[in-house]
Design a protein around this nucleic acid. Structure first.
Lengths: 135, 135
DNA sequence: ATGGACCATGTACCTAGGTACAGAGTCAAG
DNA sequence: CTTGACTCTGTACCTAGGTACATGGTCCAT
């Protein structure tokens, strides 16, 4: 078994080929080994990595932040304490996101429930979900 | 009280003035009343609306999606059943986000915990957080 | 041994979401 | 009643995150 070509990887991860090369340039995925011809040879694990990146984006992380998240594992030049600190920073981030999503979720559930059978819709305040923020 | 000028609104909502005008063009905030001079006069509620938009973006929603979320309340031409359906679609979306964030959270918590005191960091797999997805 | 499907590099182009003027009018404190 | 800070519209420009060629070299099933 020789690993995946970039085209196979793209298909499995459901992204454009160019996106993969772009991620490589950005340092989001490691440069893979090549064969004689220069063709990239990817380990199947790369699929998960790209899937992770894509999903993390949908969760509101920028590529830069995702890079930081990913670097929480592979970086061998860092101390564990450093890692721990960075992990906890991201953790706080994530908790805040979950918190706000929970608020939106509750608002929408109230909305969907209250909007059953009534007449007009003007009284369905989703805005309140994230109101009164404490930045 | 005459409402906020665009500058005051921008300051309170912590965004650029141009962003507000841009949102207006995009239909994310309603066109406010003007005074004689043409100056926009905003209700203080607009602060919450912009805050909501900004935060929803950080949660991974596009402006188009946010528009849909916001339209779940003000749209008077829609039936409650329609609203309910759309709310539930968004709800599913949000639940999925929460779910994946929970996975990331758990992964990071394991990471932060396990990375205490050990030597190398190579065994801290955050990637597993969103692996094996079921799209 | 060859032609259609892939891949490589490099550069150009695209969309979303803003941001920054320019040029002209308005507000209000002194 | 002026002057510095704001605001208006319109248009141009910018960054992030891709996406699309063009040109040329591989791969492999027939």
């Amino acid at each position: 078994m020789k690993g995946l070509t970039i085209g196979q990887l793209a298909k499995q991860a459901q992204v454009n080929i160019e996106t993969i090369r772009y991620y490589e340039r950005r340092g989001l995925i490691p440069e893979p080994p090549r064969r004689e011809s220069g063709y990239r040879q990817y380990s199947p694990d790369t699929v998960a990595r790209i899937t992770f990146i894509k999903r993390a984006q949908e969760l509101g992380f920028s590529l830069k932040e995702i890079q930081e998240l990913l670097s929480l594992r592979v970086d061998p030049g860092t101390t564990t304490g450093d890692i721990k600190g960075r992990a906890e920073a991201k953790l706080a981030d994530i908790k805040a996101k979950i918190h706000d999503l929970e608020r939106m979720k509750k608002a929408l559930m109230r909305l969907a429930a209250s909007c059953r059978g009534r007449g007009t819709t003007s009284e369905c305040p989703i805005l309140d979900a994230l109101e009164s923020r404490r930045d």
